[in-house]
Design a protein around this nucleic acid. Structure first.
Lengths: 298, 298
DNA sequence: GAGACACTTAAGGTGCACTACATGGACGTT
DNA sequence: AACGTCCATGTAGTGCACCTTAAGTGTCTC
């Protein structure tokens, strides 16, 4: 089996279409198609089959795409061992992160990497929990978050590492009738007007949990992504909202109160493809991120 | 890291010289030399250094050659999984075996493989115990033997599987003065004239053990490899000898007696490179050999 | 010092993977 | 039903990676 063919199948499993693979690997779809045929000739059986407008992996293709991860990991481990013979890790690490985590973690990361041979490029996005895993195809490290479990939904096949645990507090206008309480409960807040997040976004699962616990529906007057915008809405008395404790800067007109009686904390997690996680440069950056994350959580 | 470069380094670690690698891979030494330079360029550091007339792996080269085994194994595992999707194992398996083991195992193996898609080619040789491991570079399966441990000397890095345990008996001329005993001890036989094997050959370690146990030297009138020749020598009353119990056919003029008081048994072992051992065809043949070996030992 | 051996370098040929471009099927829209 | 979009594939031509041949250099043995 040719490793290039295996990589192609892995990419195809990740991205779904030949065209997407071609774009990602800087080739024309024709080249990818030809390589795929070569792989099938070598395997002696079909690896893809037509499906709608595109193709779908056959059972054999799926098997190879899975095995490809093991091969890529073994290969990356060799490279990592070689890198340890060098003086210091060198190279470029691409990070994709959700803004509220990047804001805290990445500036200090870049400061600490100053003068080392490591270069970091940052891309930011705010997506649904289940989309973080998909982004690992395009970034060495994806910094995402989850409320529910150890790692974001759909990232079981990826290397994951927890960078921080961060409580979610309820942000209220200073003149709100609940603003003087020490902490809040689902029963107290479920009747309020909320500034929420789009469906499928981690914070929403907390609201859903409160709906389930109390049996009442929560009114979401808006569904927003950017926490700055959310803060501004709260400051103007338009509603209350969940905001992460450490990454929210104090702001005039807004107070935050802990929420008890429901699990209200997010886990900030770094995701990488298993083979990518073997790279010395990537491991170094992950170590730094974990350290910065631990400090940021006090 | 390019897998071809890693394979080259693994071969180089196995065979020692570029020329040997070139011969084994059906290329000219020049091609190998050029590929090695390409690998060094990619690794960014020297992988070999001049040593005498030839070259020697550097620390980095050694590291890569070891990692290459893991990569090749992962790759072979993928291929093996793919092969399980096929109806039955297909392909050619090359076996190198010592004659006394091949005689018992291989004819039945070939008979059982009749009609299957598996082809077996056999090469036979009788070498010192420490040479079996080296031969695994040229054969998918090497059938060797050892007296001392689990696997022949120097084969720790190889996949090994025990096919049979076979006691070694003392072969005597029928009219020998010890020929009517039920069994023999080192003290009884150490003064006899022996037909031995070359130094370093497994059977010799039994004689050496007897020399150590009794403090006396054993007289070896000949050092021979082929057991048929040894039997003939014994039948003519020229000396006594150690012969394996199951693979020695009864012969007029010779009787065999168990030897007690010293470990006198050989272990027949199949050796394969770890990646080769993953191949479905190879695994099938190994399973058959183990089964045949178990039956042959009653 | 001659010869054998192991590796290296230079020059030239071959095959394979790529690009560019054209074709054709599947799906959604109007 | 007609059209536009998306996706995959076939053909022809090009460039590079890898090979071979040929002619070296350095090292060991006799």
């Amino acid at each position: 089996m040719d490793v290039r063919h295996l990589d192609l199948l892995r990419e195809l499993a990740d991205r779904g279409t030949l065209t997407a693979v071609a774009t990602a690997t800087h080739r024309t779809p024709s080249a990818v198609s030809q390589q795929l045929r070569a792989a099938e000739r070598e395997a002696g059986m079909p690896l893809v089959e037509p499906h709608g407008r595109g193709v779908r992996l056959t059972r054999a293709g799926l098997l190879l795409s899975e095995g490809a991860v093991d091969v890529a990991t073994a290969l990356a481990r060799v490279r990592a061992q070689l890198d340890t013979l060098r003086d210091a890790p060198v190279g470029t690490v691409t990070i994709g992160a959700l803004p509220s985590a990047a804001e805290v973690l990445v500036p200090e990361l870049l400061a600490r990497l100053e003068g080392s041979g490591l270069l970091v490029t940052l891309d930011d996005f705010d997506v649904a929990e289940s989309d973080f895993a998909r982004l690992a195809a395009d970034h060495d490290i994806v910094i995402g978050h989850t409320i529910t479990g150890d790692a974001p939904e759909g990232s079981a096949h990826l290397h994951h590492r927890t960078l921080a645990e961060e409580p979610l507090d309820v942000a209220l206008p200073v003149d709100h009738h609940l603003a003087r309480r020490r902490h809040l409960t689902p029963e107290l807040v479920v009747g309020e007007r909320w500034v929420g997040v789009p469906e499928g976004y981690p914070f929403d699962t907390v609201l859903v949990a409160m709906e389930n616990a109390t049996g009442r529906r929560i009114e979401r007057i808006q569904r927003l992504r950017d926490n700055r915008v959310v803060e501004a809405m709260v400051a103007h008395g338009l509603g209350i909202a969940l905001l992460p404790r450490f990454t929210t800067r104090p702001r005039a007109g807004v107070v935050s109160k802990p929420l008890v009686g429901v699990r209200a904390a997010r886990r900030i997690v770094a995701l990488s493809r298993r083979d990518v996680a073997q790279r010395v440069a990537v491991r170094s950056v992950l170590d730094l991120l974990a350290d910065i994350g631990a400090r940021a959580s006090r």
